[in-house]
Structures are given as structure tokens and as C-alpha cells.
Computed example of a mutant assay.
Amino acid sequence: MSARDLVAALPPLRETAVFLDFDGTLVDLAETPDGIAVPEDLPDLLDRLTEVTGGALALVSGRSVGALEEFLPGFEGVIIGGHGAEQRIDGLLETHPLAGSEALGQLTRAVEALARQHPGTIAERKPTGVVLHYRRVPDLEARLVSRMSDLAATHPGIELHRAKMALELRPDDIGKDIAVGLLRSRQPFDCRKAILFGDDATDEVAMRYLLDHGDLACKVGTGETGAPLRAEDPTELRAALWMWTSGEGSEAWPSKD
């Protein structure tokens, strides 16, 4: 659907809790984690969304909180990093107990060794996990999935998650659905219609959670999804979000005023 059609299907922004993935949703994907380009208008867009929602805006990403802070140094709102393993709320950072543990260090070193054995792959360290990117060598997928599954099996409390050309080992008691559910229970996110915008398989579980609770979800990009709404790409989504902040659309949802 077009940006205008998408906005027409959304409730009034001032009555909505907004959850936004980052890579592939707000910014285009790149060959390497550090290769993304942050659009010039994105900081202003996030500030405007925060203002209109009264602070009921959160970034919910697989990246670490620290990485998002580097890409968006002026953003002071809620950030959920590491798929929920990190939470920055009201400026305070809470991190999963596995962060900095020797077990996670051993796992990270093992994935880095695996990357050295397979040129074209990239091992990305995170405070609460480790990711193996294989976008440059997609033909290695089956082999890498097998190796990463073996590593997960030897580390209690760790599980393997698949994303777009990436394999992540992370704590097994976290998830975007859990993080979104916790935020939905606290101000200013509570008592609002909620929506998650995301592009990847890791977002689908949180989308299902919201849909099961009568909320909304929007898929960004191609591919199968359970979300009833879709934006073609991050550019179209940002255009829709700008329209939404100006009060355009929302015809399908009468205001509570």
C-alpha cells in the first residue's frame, strides 16, 4: 500500500503507542552492520513522533543500545536493544545477566573463529550475544546454520535465532514480544492502541503478540508476514510516519475527543 493508504489505516498518532525496529525498517539494510546510512531527517522524525505520542515511542532492535546511541545520538526516548536483553528507559540502562559473562565470551570467540574459517562472513559482538552475518556468501547458509546450532546446543541458556542473512546466538529468555509486553503495561504506553513496525522474522513474534491483544502490526518490505499492514521499504515508511505526525490519514479510526 502507498504511504497515504498506510496512514489512513492507522489510529490517531496521539492515541497510539509506537514500536519501531531499526535496520530494514527505519534505515535500509547494508552489507555490513556498520555500513548503514542514517537518513538526515530521521532524528527530527523521531523527535516529532515522541512529541505527538507524549513519549509513547520505543525503538525495539536487535542491535545493542550502545550501537543505536551512536547512530542516533540525540534520541532520548526508550530503546530496547539485543531483542530485549537491554533496556534503556528514562535514561537508565538494564542489561541481561549474561552480559559480560565468561560463558558469553567463550561463545563469542567460537563464532569469531567460525567467521575466520569462512571468508565473507562477519562476526558481530554484542553485549548480550553474537551474530554471524553471511550476506556476502549466502551459499554457505546451510553449513553455518548447522555450526551455529551446534554452538547453541553446548551453551545452556543460549538459543539460535535466524534473521535476514544473519544467525544470532542470544539468551533464551528474551524476545521482542516480551519487551513490548512489558512496555505496554507501563506509562505512557498503556491504555493506547499499539503498533509495531518491523521487517524481519525476529519482529514477527512481537507482531503476533500485539495482534493477539487487539493491536496492530506493519511489515516493512517483502516476504511473508502475519501483519495486516505493509510498507514497501524504509523510505515509504518514513514518508508515512511524517504524514502521521501531521495528522493526515487516520480516517478509519475516529478520534476519542
Rank of each mutant, 00 (worst) to 15 (best):
G129Q: 00
L183R: 07
K193C: 08
T121M: 10
S246P: 00
T154F: 07
G120D: 10
W242F: 09
M148I: 09
C218T: 02
L241T: 01
Q117G: 04
V180Y: 05
P127D: 09
V205I: 09
L160I: 03
V180P: 03
A163C: 10
L167V: 08
D200P: 11
D233L: 05
P228C: 09
R143P: 00
L211K: 09
R208K: 14
H133F: 01
T225C: 05
T202G: 12
R230N: 14
R162H: 12
R184S: 09
G249M: 08
T121I: 08
S246Y: 07
P127T: 09
R208T: 13
E168P: 02
D203P: 06
D215F: 02
L210N: 12
T154L: 12
M148Q: 07
L211F: 13
K193T: 15
H161V: 13
L132S: 10
S246R: 10
E232Y: 01
A194V: 04
A231F: 03
Y209F: 15
P156H: 07
P156N: 04
G129C: 09
M148V: 14
L229W: 07
L241D: 00
D190V: 10
A163R: 02
V137I: 13
R125W: 04
L211N: 11
I174Y: 05
R170L: 14
R238G: 13
T245S: 12
G181D: 13
L132Q: 02
M243V: 00
D215A: 04
L229D: 10
E236W: 06
G120K: 02
D200H: 08
A166R: 00
P171H: 04
T245C: 14
L140C: 12
A142Y: 00
R136M: 11
G226C: 15
A206L: 06
A194S: 13
H155P: 03
P228R: 12
L237F: 11
R147V: 01
P119D: 13
A231M: 01
L182N: 11
H133P: 09
L182K: 12
T128W: 06
M165Y: 12
D177Y: 03
D172W: 04
A217M: 09
D212C: 04
P119V: 12
G175T: 03
H133C: 04
D177L: 06
M165C: 10
H213K: 11
D215E: 13
P127S: 12
